[in-house]
Simulated scan of single mutants.
Amino acid sequence: MKDDEKILSQFDLRQFLTYRLSKLQNALNAQAGHVLASHGDITLTEWRILYILRSMSTATMSQIVKESRLDKAQISRAIKGLVDKGLIASVQDERDQRRQLLSATAEGRALKEKILPIMMRRQEAMTEGLTQAEIDTFIKVLDQLDETALRREF
């Protein structure tokens, strides 16, 4: 057995950061999906788009994709769903006919304001029992992992 194979055979999958982060992400997404479906009948991706539009007021799909780092097709389907539900408006950009400018409607802003306190309580529950120093360290680690995730060569 080669040295690399020996090391890998002794390595528990639960020790891989990517495995643990993926499991955590799946659990948190399921939790958020349940909360959003029961309080607003929207998906997690739709919620993220509404929240992004909160800070940008008007955005293109490309800007939302860049900000969220979600799949373009997933964002496109969610935008269609939000438009169909009357939660966002889509108008053609006069300067570039290929682009649509997206903005939250009054209904979309009202739904976001209704759900935001619930999502903030969820956020607080996740950090309950952690010191500010632990939270700061965790954010620093996430930032470093985020940068590493952009690399393509190893």
Rank of each mutant, 00 (worst) to 15 (best):
L145Q: 09
T105M: 10
E153I: 15
A37N: 12
L24Y: 06
K2Q: 11
Q31M: 09
T127M: 14
F11L: 04
Q74C: 11
A125T: 08
Q63N: 10
S55M: 11
L116P: 01
R99N: 12
I64C: 02
E94K: 12
V65T: 12
W47L: 03
K2P: 10
G40H: 01
T58H: 12
L13A: 10
R151F: 11
D3L: 14
A73V: 08
T60S: 02
I118P: 00
D71T: 05
L36P: 09
I135Y: 04
A125H: 08
D12M: 06
L44C: 03
Q144H: 08
L36D: 08
A37W: 07
M56T: 00
I139N: 04
E5P: 05
I79A: 13
K66N: 07
E153G: 06
M61S: 14
F16N: 04
S38V: 14
E5K: 08
V91M: 08
R95G: 14
F138G: 09
A27L: 13
E124I: 14
N29K: 07
N29S: 13
S76E: 10
L116E: 15
E94I: 13
D84T: 12
I52Q: 05
V35G: 02
Y19D: 04
I7C: 03
K72I: 14
N29C: 10
A104E: 06
I115T: 00
M120Y: 06
R54S: 12
H39Q: 11
Q63M: 13
L145A: 11
Q97T: 01
G33C: 09
V91K: 09
Y51P: 00
D93K: 07
L82W: 01
S90Y: 05
M119A: 04
K85Y: 05
D96L: 07
R48F: 01
L28S: 07
R95K: 14
I88Q: 06
I52W: 04
E147M: 11
Q74T: 15
D143C: 02
A37S: 14
S62E: 13
L87I: 05
L150C: 09
T148P: 03
D71L: 05
R69N: 12
T131P: 11
L102S: 07
R121C: 02
L50F: 00
E67Q: 08
L44Q: 04
R122N: 10
D96I: 10
K85W: 04
D96A: 10
T43K: 09
Q100E: 13
D84Q: 15
R151N: 09
A89P: 02
L142W: 09
H34C: 08
T60K: 00
A27C: 03
T127K: 07
R77E: 02
I135W: 05
R99M: 13
K2C: 05
T137A: 14
D93Q: 11
K140E: 15
A133P: 05
D93H: 12
R14D: 02
S55E: 10
L111F: 10
E46Y: 02
E107N: 12
T60W: 00
Q97P: 01
L145D: 05
L101V: 05
L82N: 02
P117W: 03
